[in-house]
Design a protein around this nucleic acid. Sequence first.
DNA 1: GCGCTGAATTGGATCGTTCTAAATCCCGTG
DNA 2: CACGGGATTTAGAACGATCCAATTCAGCGC
Lengths: 344, 344
Amino acid sequence: MNGRRVTVTDIARGCGVSRATVSLVLRGSPLPAAATRAKVEAELKKQGYVYNRAAANLRQRRSSSVALVVNDLSNPFFADFAAGVDETLGAAGYVTLLGSTGESPERQQRVLASLMEHDPAGIILSPAEGSDGVSLGQVLGVHLPVLVFNREPSHVRWSASHWDYLALDNRRGAALATRHLLERGHRSIAFFGGHAESSSCRDRRRGYVEAMRATGIEPEPGWLVETAPTRLDAAARTASLFTSKHAPTAAVCYNDAVALGLMLGLGARGITVGRDFAVTGFDDIPEAAVSTPALTTLATDPRARGRQAAERILERARRPDIGAVRGIAPVRLIIRASSEATIA
Amino acid sequence: MNGRRVTVTDIARGCGVSRATVSLVLRGSPLPAAATRAKVEAELKKQGYVYNRAAANLRQRRSSSVALVVNDLSNPFFADFAAGVDETLGAAGYVTLLGSTGESPERQQRVLASLMEHDPAGIILSPAEGSDGVSLGQVLGVHLPVLVFNREPSHVRWSASHWDYLALDNRRGAALATRHLLERGHRSIAFFGGHAESSSCRDRRRGYVEAMRATGIEPEPGWLVETAPTRLDAAARTASLFTSKHAPTAAVCYNDAVALGLMLGLGARGITVGRDFAVTGFDDIPEAAVSTPALTTLATDPRARGRQAAERILERARRPDIGAVRGIAPVRLIIRASSEATIA
DNA sequence: GCGCTGAATTGGATCGTTCTAAATCCCGTG
DNA sequence: CACGGGATTTAGAACGATCCAATTCAGCGC
């Protein structure tokens, strides 16, 4: 009835033992006698006791939370990632402190500072575009376990840092898509979309270039088209693919959004994707399976990545002394109709 | 270098004042003299002090977090909702404790119990399907501000409870879609998909029935088809629409997933949606705009709903005594090609 | 020089839990 | 029947911040 919280002291008084004994029962210690334990447990239930983990953590100088900071929760990729993180953290008895930054480095600083005050055991950070490693280092301090996901902030001296890093195998993924198109007979293949300064775009481009060269083909400059990573901008820049002499017959796209945009742009020019032109994406967002034609792409299993990230941060919290780990997560080529176009 | 945390005591020692003074500076009190304040602030920076909000909350007997528990984070609707919640909570200086339940009532109980130990100022809960109000009441206690979103758990005596409730205007939404189809001349309109026992499905059905009756049409039993709320099951049950004598020429679907599934199923039967048959959805998921044909549906603005939910829980935390509020959020009909089919 | 006043500062208790070290209980033994 | 010793239990300090009441300080009038 009254708003006061029930504490161990209330329980102790209520059944005539000391606070210490109640605490032992709460933590399942084998010390208390069976009869005492039963008495205490009955009283706990009777008074509706709720454990105060904050107080316990204060005394024990440990933490039972992990912060998760993502650049864009409304992106299904990150939402799924977050679900995976929370699943694993929850199973390990940790609670997830959520922060989203909306791709703003300034907001990211504020969010991180606020989360730090809650003393998380670690931070999983998918940095906002344009994040600066030095500013990040300032808020995060020197001791906190940190896992950077998906993107590399600028000015991070990884060799001197204990930050872990987890990213998709962008290079191999792009190479897989490129080889797939090469096998279907294409020789003039573009790499379409993305900002060249972003780390993930650089890696994907590299995979593409390497796969091309491995087949003895040097990508022409006109085959490399930069766009914002959005459907709209991708559609708008479709034309730039057809200015060079050797117009490509296929394109490896930076991601699914870009690929869907390109498909729109190609359609508008009367080009039928899957018959006249082959397209691949990256991410396997839900739409990829149901677009027309269905999009060949690289599945990244964001939920599993989330679990992986959570496991790594927990492991590091347990053993802070081990060296930083760079993890590269596998990707899987999903072949669908959009890459069916072949060159005889 | 050493792992010990810097505390107010360290700062106090470092610049020759008392802990109390440091605390006053930290909280921006006007009491300390300007010179003292400057001295303390310099020391704070020098030692890299990080505020320990848990300790402060313990003493002040208040909380700076709000728990957000969702049934399915990987659903873009809830991910967007979560982004809105976090945005508003963050701006108010609260941190979001995330929990996801994967639609399992058992997991939900565990997650809630764990979150309760972190003493949140309130809980925003989008209940798992099949949640029981009594069990929920047990973990949540009597005093905590609670906002239930989107679904009604069973056995909740709302009249006797202080829980707030926020849901979409399911009834009006379905009515809007139904009227839209009626205006295009349809008379045989089905309500397709969803589990009849879920509260949102009941409400949407009601809106549909009311709109039909308002035009003097009594829906035939064969026009009410139940399905799991998934694309797959919806596609599989397409046939049941065409068993009755008056086969419908249009369908109001439970949600977008179901609508997309139905469109698949209709396509397989050689029926062209948008020409031979009209379809509407509910939610306006991103795919709705790009499906073929594009889907007429009801936009719900989940992010704004998240902000709204956060604001309401903060308001209730401030004034716990006001009566429970039932909020109904507006929905907007988005007309696209899938409902273009008309009856002369 | 003294008392007064408002401004600035501070010691000590406190929030709810856990840790440590010590106290108490209970029994079988010599 | 005192005593050793394992099994239980407990008092009191501690975690890091804040609250409260009390103290110190500086300036001022007389």
